[in-house]
């Protein structure tokens, strides 16, 4: 079954047409790899799929329903979570950040912390749990942001360049987690401009160039 269905999706930054997707689908439980050079439209496409950016034209359906963009699209935003290329961690410690998603879904603090701790263990962030998020390294921030995305409990994860600007050690951890997630059957859409690290994964490869699927 297709979770995402995109047709004739166009987006412009000012007058430049940066995205022009004729047709694209993402199936349930599948890992879709978005590849392409920097500036090929990967981030723009992921932000649209996350419901954060509205296309100028075209159809983006999630589970046969048109996505509602921005603040009104709460239902979609609770089904699909985006891990940004340069994630922002809120002021406070790691636990507070990771428990944000569960708290946003109405869980009480102890339930949310339990959910957060599970995600923290999964992303090997247990040593960071009480650390100030502002004082983490780039790689640690990315791992914590991944834990936060997992704790949110979305059924589909969009990962934008998950290992860019990350040291080798953190990168290995993140790749390991992505492999585990892929094996668990969660739907993943992962963008990267260095696809070599995904060789061990069975993926549906979508290559973008100048905003088009090639």
């Amino acid at each position: 079954m297709d979770v995402f269905f995109l047709e004739n999706v166009k987006f412009r930054y000012e007058t430049d047409l940066v995205l022009d997707i004729e047709r694209m689908t993402v199936s349930t439980g599948e890992v879709t790899l978005l590849t392409g050079a920097n500036g090929s439209g990967k981030t723009t496409l992921l932000r649209m799929m996350a419901g954060l950016l509205m296309p100028e034209d075209g159809i983006i359906n999630y589970k046969d329903e048109a996505i509602i963009f921005g603040k009104p699209g709460l239902k979609h935003r609770r089904q699909v979570t985006l891990l940004a290329q340069e994630p922002y961690l809120f002021r406070g410690n790691v636990l507070l950040n990771v428990s944000y998603g569960p708290r946003a879904r109405g869980m009480n603090i102890s339930q949310a912390n339990k959910k957060a701790e599970e995600a923290i263990l999964k992303t090997r962030c247990e040593g960071l749990i009480q650390r100030d998020a502002a004082k983490l390294s780039g790689g640690e921030k990315k791992r914590v942001a991944l834990a936060r995305a997992l704790a949110a409990g979305a059924e589909t994860l969009l990962l934008d360049e998950p290992i860019s600007h990350v040291d080798e050690e953190n990168s290995e951890v993140i790749v390991g987690i992505i492999q585990e997630l892929a094996a668990s059957g969660i739907t993943l859409v992962v963008s990267t401009h260095i696809p070599e690290w995904t060789n061990s994964l069975s993926v549906n490869n979508v290559r973008l160039a100048y905003g088009r699927v090639v």
């Binding site: 954060l52 940004a84 922002y88 809120f90 936060r148």
Partner: peptide
Amino acid sequence: DDRVRETALTLGASNGLVAWT
């Protein structure tokens, strides 16, 4: 930072929680 709002949105925050964040 603009990313605060977007991060809150993508983590499933309601409108009120986005403003609070």
